[in-house]
Simulated assay, not measured.
Amino acid sequence: MKKKRHHIWKNIMIMAVVFLVASGSSIILQKTGVHEHITAIFIFAVFLTSILTDGYIYGIVSALVGTLAVNYAYTYPFYALDFRFQSNMISAVVMMAIAVLTGMLTTQVKTHEAIKVESEKERMRANLLRAVSHDIRTPLTTIYGASTTLLESGENYTKEQRIKILKGIQEDSDWLMRMVENLLSITRIDEGKIKIIKTPTVLDELIDSVMVKFHKRYPQQEVYLDLPEDIIIIPMDAILIEQVIFNLLENAVLHADGMTELILKVFVLGKQVVFEVSDNGCGIEKERLNGIFNGSYHLFEGRTASSDSKKHNSGIGLSVCQTIVKAHDGAITAENNPVGGAVFRFSLNIEEMKESE
């Protein structure tokens, strides 16, 4: 309701501003004795209003107002409505025709664009669903097979073997839980169910929290940190940004084959803080770079399935990263490092906290 009211006031303001400018210009022309272009100015004002506002009503109202204004103030007899002259009637008809035709055209264009955007969203949802279904099948099969084995013939295995099987079930279950959390983050933010509330967050505390969680999950993977010496405070939703950094680090662990070095670097660039996760692994195939954040890039490149469920995450983690960063009015990119490996980089604005936040 508030959004609809906002659009109405926005359209009214556009119409008012356009006609104030048209009226001011006409007054100037009238004082200089140039009357013949005044009608053209109001016709152009009707055209602009029809383009810049939604639907037909504002264009038609502007045509009526313009017709009355020209007839009353700028044509003979002045300051009196008189439609007996043919030129006055022609002006009125032209303005109405422009308003209706322009309104029809802009409405069709906006409708077409809305349909196009919605179709693209549906395509992305379908690709995401196919990707998730494709990759979830493997850990589910593993969990089902392992649990069935323990139930049917667990007594035939040693204690160490049973513990190993149970750890496998635990790891795959944990992977599935994180997949679901990532999916929920995407859908909630896209549907506006999560409101990004930014609070001042100290950079060092943010990184410490991420590292604790990351090392708990990947105790063998060392991360080299390169952080500013100064205390940096960034307005953000700390929980969501933690998820972004964790996902980027995890992505390197899962996909950067041959990696021996993983670096998390943070630096200030102007009014932005830039987070950079780089590795010296296998890098990203050039044809996959453009679609790496869409949640299912590997399905379009003929990537074959792997028996190791840990090597699959459908790019969902990267899609989550893009969704969260965009919700923070930031930007995220991916590229190959010239010396080898990949670099993921995202930036957040260092902005003053507003009361609305």
Rank of each mutant, 00 (worst) to 15 (best):
K3C: 05
K4I: 07
R5K: 15
H6K: 02
I8Y: 01
I8P: 01
I14M: 09
M15V: 04
V17Q: 06
A22K: 11
S23Q: 07
G24L: 10
S25V: 14
S26G: 09
T32G: 00
V34T: 02
H35W: 11
A45M: 08
G55Y: 09
Y58D: 01
S62V: 04
A63N: 08
L64M: 07
V70Q: 02
Y74D: 00
D82L: 03
Q86D: 12
S87D: 08
S87M: 11
N88D: 10
M89K: 14
A92M: 13
A92F: 09
A97V: 05
I98Y: 04
T111R: 10
H112M: 10
I115Y: 11
I115T: 10
K116M: 08
E120Q: 13
K121G: 02
E122L: 14
E122K: 15
R123D: 09
R125C: 10
L128K: 14
L129T: 15
I136C: 07
R137Y: 08
R137G: 01
T138E: 03
P139A: 04
I143F: 01
Y144I: 12
T148F: 01
S153M: 09
G154I: 08
E155T: 15
Y157H: 06
Q161N: 05
K164S: 09
I165H: 07
S173I: 02
D174M: 10
W175Y: 08
M179S: 12
V180S: 11
N182V: 07
N182F: 06
L183T: 12
E191A: 07
E191C: 02
K198F: 03
P200C: 03
L203S: 09
L206P: 01
V210Y: 11
M211A: 03
K213G: 09
F214R: 11
K216Q: 09
V223N: 06
Y224A: 15
I233G: 05
I241C: 13
Q243P: 12
Q243G: 15
V244A: 14
F246P: 04
L249C: 05
L254H: 13
A256M: 10
D257P: 00
G258K: 04
T260K: 14
L262E: 03
L264K: 01
K271L: 01
V274Y: 00
F275T: 05
E276S: 13
D279I: 00
G281C: 05
C282P: 00
G283Q: 11
G291P: 13
S296I: 03
H298P: 11
G302V: 04
I316D: 07
I316F: 01
S319M: 15
T323I: 11
K326F: 02
I332R: 12
E335N: 07
E335W: 01
V339Q: 14
V339S: 15
G340I: 02
A342K: 04
V343C: 03
E352I: 14
K354A: 12
S356H: 10
